[in-house]
Amino acid sequence: MTRIRFVGIALSSMLWVSGALAQDLAPLDSDSVLAAAQSLEVGEMQARNEFRSLDQDVQALKKEVLDLNRDLFLLEEELLFPANSQVAFFISVDVGEYFDLDAVKLQIDGKEVSNYLYTEREVSALHRGGVHRMHMENLKVGNHELIAVFTGKGPSTRDYRRGATMSFEKGIGAKYVELEITDRMTKQQPEFVIKEWE
């Protein structure tokens, strides 16, 4: 009997505890749920907007950096090669069937100033009409001598090495010199021509 009473008391106290717990876990008010969801949505939108504006800032910064880089490059060129002493040397190829260009070496007034190795891709670009600014130099006003040595494969894929020379007068203002490789059809040999741009 005592045991039955004890179990009864235990059962009723368990019921009382679970009732109290049930009150604590009662379903929330629907209005407060809606308000919470709305504030979450607003928070998300704000975060998205912030992210978008950050992204825009980053893009703007990137553009500024690129513009600055370009300006610095141009300024550097102007400082290193001022127009009044600047001489630029260009390589071009007209047809180029009789000569497969490998390298060009430039000497000015007896001093080697450039030795450029051409890759297959660069040669292909030249064949398609590209002009390569191979070298820039500062020269004083007066007479100068240019020697250009071209190496590559000639007719019948033999190793070919040919030089071309030119004396030119450097005046005030920039000067542009073109070294052109052409095919001389009559002799079936390449020809190397140096000319000044007006």
Partner: peptide
């Protein structure tokens, strides 16, 4: 025998 450039 080819010339190879890193930037390519």
């Amino acid at each position: 025998g080819e010339n190879l450039r890193l930037s390519e």
